[in-house]
Design a protein around this nucleic acid. Structure first.
Lengths: 339, 339
DNA sequence: CAGACGCATGACAACGTCGACATATTTTTC
DNA sequence: GAAAAATATGTCGACGTTGTCATGCGTCTG
């Protein structure tokens, strides 16, 4: 393999001078620099990261440890955000999935250690509370889309489910809807409670009574084996004599069944019933007809900001473990009409 | 940082002996081995991969270079398959996305080189033909879900779109359907032609005439900015006086709109019209009501087998660049009825 | 014009690991 | 019971890089 030494030989300088050129250090004549650069090009030399790391004990590598993230349609944008940041900042990304198994998780932390990772991004598929099995490794860590149960205060970046749901609810209220249905997310998800709270609070603030609301559970059970009541819940909701004029679906995926339930009863969307989702899971939100009005989970930015934050933590410039929250912008499409 | 030397000091042996214990080499007394292992545990020692690599010039690392893979709901299972294989076989995975930009691609190959990657898995989101910008790096490469345009004959692993579509078509024919509609995938995808061919050929073999078929284009245009005609195409197809009793949708995502189009016309699924998809993109196929009968793209296995194949290529045991094809199993659900 | 300074370059060691080889100890063999 | 073989452990150097320090040379200052 071509190393710094071969380059030095060809360029007729010492290896240290080559090193200087590579790292853009000062005190190299323009003429020498050019000779070295030519040699590098001619030999196709590429610096060896492993050697660098061993010398400097910094790997310039971040690890992503994810539960099912890279595995599922959802939230892969988090990973994309991280990768884009890494690419732009010359960092390398090592990625691993636990698949939910905690022995896996321990193994992965070991692996990260053995690569002398600078920091870890702990990412979850759904917004939730976790118990990271860090194995007391002491690698700087930032949580993305989740929050540690224990008070060990790792910095985290999360979506603002509350604000997103509040916006959606307001959007419906401002368009004259006064009977509104809500299909609840799986209660094990952190977003479930936040979104429901926002829905209740916001409708309450607008003067709606509990009897104006129609709230049903759409899903429950462990991730990957949940029971799905959405279709039944939506059907039942729409069969009431005093049926809601708008339904807020816990997320976009569930909205598919709300659409189908409504259409099976001969209701037109949005003329007879307005529907909103949550997440802006575009494979769904853009595929539905009419396209779905929803609140966009800021997955990409979650990843970008998370990497950024981790970087400052590693650099030591971030002292107190801060938790940031990112807003969920409303994406207006065609599934809601004004009354 | 705790290194092999500190362990040796604590255990009262030479560093080479520690190395022997770590690598399970013979010629170590049981007693010594235990003493060393205790020291390792006590100090929390973890071997330094970079040092290992520099010593052995093997990184035990594979790189994944993907177009948009980790980025999209689709095909992320390929990555999961690769990761699971890597995890089981003690390899590390470095992952990068081009986002479709070829300067990015060159940059990524450079990065891979600098990490002295053992091999590369070139993965695409959609089944298609590509021109990999390997930059003549000469790292062993396996293509997954795609095939190089040039004849440079890199080994590849691809899904068997033809066989999958054949199975789906037969399935419909065997259940008595004789008027069948087909909504075509974006023609830029390799699967589009294969699936359509299989559909035509199989219906032909069963004695159906071209006039029994109703074929419409569902999508076209560049990835990420395609024009979507699915809803219109399905609507038009079903408005024909001699409308098809079954519709084959180019993929599951498109099936959402076929469902909605049918329901908007008051048709029941599957009583009035049967529908099948392709891909088994479960967020969709399981969310639809009735659940969608489809052919499963073997994404996970594509990844698993790809990693396995790359491994043998790297080890040099695979001489001729072989191309494998993996079958798409039919997943029977409830969206088809027998006539 | 001597000393000080700035610039350009090189020599060398060290990072953590393991392969090659050497040495020491025990066991087997005839 | 001595030589041969097998087992157990250690010494040393090399991998590719960069930080530290040293050196050589030209220029400026007073």
């Amino acid at each position: 393999m071509v190393s710094i030494v071969s380059v030095a030989k060809v360029a007729g300088v010492s290896n240290k001078t080559v090193s200087r050129v590579i790292n853009g250090e000062p005190y190299v004549t323009e003429e020498t620099r050019e000779r070295v650069e030519r040699a590098i090009r001619d030999l196709g030399y590429v610096p060896n990261m492993a050697a660098r790391q061993i010398r400097s004990s910094r790997s310039n590598t971040f690890g992503i440890i994810a539960d099912y993230v890279s595995t599922t349609p959802y939230s892969v944008d988090i990973v994309r955000g991280i990768q884009d940041w890494a690419n732009a900042n010359g960092k390398t990304i090592l990625m691993a999935n636990t698949g939910g198994a905690s022995e896996q998780e321990i193994k992965i932390w070991k692996m990260f250690q053995s690569h002398r990772i600078d920091g870890v991004l702990y990412v979850t598929m759904y917004h939730r509370i976790v118990d990271p099995e860090t194995g007391d490794v002491g690698i700087p860590t930032v949580m993305i889309n989740c929050r540690p149960r224990t008070s060990e205060l790792l910095p985290s970046i999360e979506p603002d489910d509350y604000q997103g749901a509040q916006n959606l609810t307001r959007y419906l209220l401002e368009r004259g809807h006064r009977k509104i249905g809500y299909i609840r997310l799986n209660p094990i998800l952190l977003g479930a409670e936040l979104r429901l709270d926002a829905f209740r609070k916001t409708t309450g603030d607008f003067g709606l009574a509990e009897s104006d609301l129609s709230i049903r559970l759409g899903m429950e059970g462990p991730v990957g084996a949940e029971k799905n009541y959405v279709f039944a819940a939506a059907t039942e909701m729409l069969q009431q004599k005093d049926r809601p004029t708008a339904i807020m679906s816990g997320n976009d995926e569930m909205a598919i069944q709300v659409y189908i339930a409504a259409m099976a009863m001969g209701l037109r969307i949005p003329e007879d019933v307005s529907i909103v989702g949550f997440d802006d899971f575009r494979t769904v939100s853009l595929a539905l007809r009419p396209e779905l009005t929803t609140a966009a989970l800021p997955y990409y930015d979650l990843g970008l900001q998370g990497a950024e934050l981790l970087n400052s933590v590693v650099a030591g410039s971030e002292v107190c473990p801060s938790s940031r929250v990112m807003s969920c912008n409303l994406v207006e499409r065609l599934s809601v009409c004004s009354l």
